[in-house]
Structures are given as C-alpha cells and as structure tokens.
C-alpha cells in the first residue's frame, strides 16, 4: 500500500462532552448504526479507556481483541477491528484494564492517531470518555466533526463548557506550535493577570491584536473549530430550547460557533437497556428515538441545524 500518498477518504467523527453518563456511547453506537444502515462502512472506536462498554451495545460481552494489544503489544489498530452482528459496522473495543488513559505516552498517542486516520472505513466514530484530560481533548481535535453530547442539567452544562474551553485552548496551542510559536500561548496564559486576561476568548483576542501574523493564522485555523451539539434525554420544550441558548452563549462569550444538530427525547426503554447492558443496537430501530437519530445524523452530514418548537 502506498501509504505515504494515500489521501484519507473517510470522515472521523468524535463524540465527547465532559460529563459522564450523558449518553456518549449511546449516541456513538446509534449514529454509527444509522450510517451503516444507509450503506456507509463504519468503524466505531471506543476510547473510553477504563470505562469502555461500547461493545455491550452490540451484544459482545467479552471482546476478543481490544486496544490492550495496541498499547502493550504494539499491535496494529486495523488488526483489532471486531465485526458486529450488524452489516457494515465493526468496532475497536477500549476494554483495557491494564493501562489508564493518562498513562498513554506521547508517541503512543501519535501512533494511535496516525492509525485511526488510516482505518479502512467511510466513517470512523470515536467514543471519548468523560473528563477533559488532554489525551481526550487531542483525540477530539483530530476529528472532522466534533460532536458534544449534553443532558439538560447544570453540572453537565458546566462540564461541557469546561470541555469546549479546554479544547479551544489546546487547539490554539497546537496550531501556533505548528507555525513555530511553541511557547507563546502558555507563556501569556501563565501571566494572564498582568495582561488583564480572564479567559480563553480574551487570550485569543489579545493574541490577534498584538501579533497580526498570529491573528491571520488563528482566523484561518479556527474557522474549522465548529462544534455539533446534541441534547440527550430532553423531556420538554424548555429542555430543547436549551440548545439554542447554549449556542448563543458560546458565540457571544467564547466566539465558538455551535451547530445545534439535534436532540433525543428521554426514553425509558433506552435508559433501561443501557443500564442493563442489553444488546440495544441489535434492535434499536424498534425504539422511539430512531427517528431523532436519523434527523441528527442528516443534520450533521448536511451542516444543518435542528428545527425548534415554538417558532424560534
């Protein structure tokens, strides 16, 4: 294979959001299942190291292969792909107990990213774990589509803001490093009080105002920093409208464009089967939320936003 010249055809999606229990794995697997049903060749990657349960959504209780082999035996990622019972969709299990995600070395991480990008699939969907560890953020940032999952609760909103703020900070740092300004971001941030900088938005504004060259770079590179928001477990119109409010706040306070791509209504059957680790995906089309998943995926693909109730 002429790997050096291979242009990646598939798209990488990453599903994150900070707080645990918001339904990241549920969204990853159902979005993947719908894409596969539409004929896409899909590989799901469970990066929730230590808390991995993506495989159980597909009725696989003890995966034969997992990322353990990648981290400990240097196995190639493409050899760890496990078929599911559904057509067009396979997965890489994150069922790793011997290593914690924060123990992954820098070179392991780069190797992992390189191999994720080379996976033979039209859609790779990465299920990120909870939290805002920099390994999680970096994985989020390699995606072509960055998706955050939120439930309508204050703590979840708080964690999500934290997650997005840190992703943005990481993105700015990485970008400027690539252009040869390795230290400047951290240097200014560490002395932010003397610069009168309170937050990431003001840091970016400061960089842009002070160094026009950096400003040009950031304008160019951050244009792609766009987040798709999914609201999960909504119970009423107010919950649904929360997505629009968050979009507003993110733009006005952080300058981060959010696409409110979809919402999923709270569904008792889903909640139960997730909790009981039922092979939910094998008959998920029978549940009420299949339609909402379809709308969500179509919106993400087409860059559209969900239509809101009440004329907003």
């Amino acid at each position: 294979m002429a790997q050096t010249t291979k242009v990646r055809e598939g798209e990488i999606w990453a599903v994150g959001g900070g707080k645990g229990g918001t339904g990241k794995t549920f969204i990853t697997s159902s979005v993947g299942t719908y894409l596969a049903k539409k004929g896409k060749n899909v590989v799901l990657v469970d990066m929730d190291i230590g808390g991995a349960n993506l495989h159980s959504f597909f009725g696989i209780s003890r995966p034969q292969k997992s990322l353990t082999s990648f981290f400990e035996m240097g196995a190639s990622l493409s050899d760890l792909v496990v078929k599911t019972e559904l057509d067009n969709i396979s997965l890489i299990s994150g069922d790793v107990h011997s290593i914690a995600s924060d123990k992954i070395t820098f070179s392991q991480k780069l190797k992992l990213f390189r191999q994720i990008m080379k996976l033979n699939a039209q859609n790779v969907i990465i299920d990120l774990g909870a939290g805002s560890h920099y390994n999680t953020l970096d994985t989020f940032l390699i995606a072509d589509r960055m998706i955050v999952v939120l439930v309508p609760e204050v703590i979840a909103i708080e964690n999500m803001y934290h997650f997005i703020k840190n992703s943005l900070f990481r993105k700015v740092k990485k970008t400027l490093k690539e252009y040869g300004f390795k230290e400047i971001v951290q240097h200014i941030w560490d002395r932010r009080q003397s610069y009168g900088i309170n937050n990431i938005k003001e840091l970016i504004d400061y960089l842009k105002d002070s160094f026009s060259y950096i400003g040009t770079i950031l304008d160019h590179e951050l244009a792609a920093f766009k987040i798709h928001l999914v609201l999960n477990m909504v119970r009423n119109n107010n919950d649904i409208l929360l997505g629009a409010s968050i979009k507003s706040v993110m733009m006005k306070y952080l300058g981060v464009p959010i696409q409110y791509s979809g919402y999923i209504e709270y569904n008792d059957a889903v909640w139960k089967s997730v909790r009981e680790r039922k092979p939910f995906m094998l008959n998920y089309l029978a549940t009420g939320c299949a339609k909402e998943i379809e709308v969500l995926v179509d919106n993400i693909v087409k860059g559209r936003e969900v239509s809101l109730p009440g004329g907003y």
């Binding site: 909103i157 803001y161 309170n198 409208l241 409010s245 507003s248 706040v249 306070y253 004329g311 907003y312």
Partner: peptide
C-alpha cells in the same frame, strides 16, 4: 422573538450562564 429569547438568557441567573464561572464577569 429573538430579542425576547436573548433577553431572557442574558437578564440574570440563567442556567446556561451561571456555569460559565467567574472568568466571565
């Protein structure tokens, strides 16, 4: 409609503003 919606968000202790923390004054 937009004005009314936004006014509500930015008028007080909205559930979407409070979690931003003190770094936003």
């Amino acid at each position: 409609n937009s004005f009314m919606r936004l006014k509500k968000i930015y008028s007080g202790d909205s559930i979407v503003l409070a979690p931003l923390g003190e770094e936003f004054s």
